[in-house]
Design a protein around this nucleic acid. Sequence first.
DNA 1: GTGGTCTAGACCACT
DNA 2: GTGGTCTAGACCACT
Lengths: 129, 129, 129, 129
Amino acid sequence: MRIDPKSHVPVYLQIVEEIRTSIAAGVYLPGEVVPSVRVLALESQVNPNTVQRAYEELERQGVIESRRGVGKFVCRRGQHSAVAQSESAVRGEFQRGIDIARAADLPVKRIRALFEECLADSRKAEAKS
Amino acid sequence: MRIDPKSHVPVYLQIVEEIRTSIAAGVYLPGEVVPSVRVLALESQVNPNTVQRAYEELERQGVIESRRGVGKFVCRRGQHSAVAQSESAVRGEFQRGIDIARAADLPVKRIRALFEECLADSRKAEAKS
Amino acid sequence: MRIDPKSHVPVYLQIVEEIRTSIAAGVYLPGEVVPSVRVLALESQVNPNTVQRAYEELERQGVIESRRGVGKFVCRRGQHSAVAQSESAVRGEFQRGIDIARAADLPVKRIRALFEECLADSRKAEAKS
Amino acid sequence: MRIDPKSHVPVYLQIVEEIRTSIAAGVYLPGEVVPSVRVLALESQVNPNTVQRAYEELERQGVIESRRGVGKFVCRRGQHSAVAQSESAVRGEFQRGIDIARAADLPVKRIRALFEECLADSRKAEAKS
DNA sequence: GTGGTCTAGACCACT
DNA sequence: GTGGTCTAGACCACT
């Protein structure tokens, strides 16, 4: 759980993203339970209210569902929803980057170069860990 | 000037981005004056204080400089700074998108495909206008 | 907190100086919380926005950092930064004084005498209190 | 005439200081005429109104006097007043520096060292020019 | 008219 | 309660 408290994105949305991508990646499979609010709050050094709010959002998105007194579970089609929504989030970021680049009049070649640099950095970082 | 009041990104930072990309694109050249605080506030339907704050940030970034009672001007090396900072902003967006994608375990091929789709969409949109 | 509303120096910069010298002097140690925006505003009879602006400047200077909903804290190396920046502020004042003195053609001996007088006054004032 | 448009000190007061130190240094002797508002405005790249305001202040201080249709002249005791006021301005700067230093808990030894460094810098700069 | 600073008061995100 | 952002409106210094 990597939360950036200085980001403009509200913390609860950062948590939504984190959990959603975990589900998309198959860390939590359909029918399985996700970490409790308390546990996740401790792990990510965040107030339980904030985690609660994140889980409400994921429920609204149809990714998880809540069983009172038991816990929260990944929906049957939860992984599909999560993948779809992650892709849509990824698109959003790329689109924003491209918009800035085009407004600044960067040539397409340069935009692609910047993207490939980022991708290479990310793969190097992964290889290390 | 397109300001999205619903964005998580503060309005003043959206203005920073807008002006910075304009300078990067050569709309305002080094030594030239940028729109006055009051004019920009009227144009973008935003409070003058918010515009002022955006301009303070651009001054801190070394893109513009201010002459009291006269106006604000693009610094000699202002366009270079603006381009550099735009590229760094673009990188930031791409990195964030790639991070989400990798956390969701999307294959590199799929990540590139998503990027190329976004790029193609953006070029189509431009061709239209 | 002594704020002089008649000074040419903006109030928010006077606050920056006050807090910075307190941190330099070890009143607030690294990792400790500094007074909240509202509390400081009440204490110094100043609008909260003005205090906020001062704290933003200190954050930019790497002296304090902010945790949303929690408070503002002295950075690990915050005391060092504060001392360095205080010394630089002191130099600035001395330089300005010396510049005026030399432009008015005061002999070096006289400049030193003026400085020692000020220093002696300051020590006397301290001894009293 | 060195005017710093970014200083917190109003430009007209910077001009007052400049002219006063010139008179203190004997550049303009008692009975002699000082540069006209127009000339000084051109030389220092400043609006004539601002220069006018500076001269009014110097007149109020008893350093110069105005003869309508002729010009502005250094008063009989103008040089003495100028020296006295320059010394007082110098003291003010030194005092402010010392105050910051003492509030930041710098040892007296360090304060003196900072002063001597500034003095040495100033003498080097003069030697060069 | 142009920039710089400040106040008063509001609303949001987070604890 | 704590920080972050924004609006509305004011006054000052300077052109």
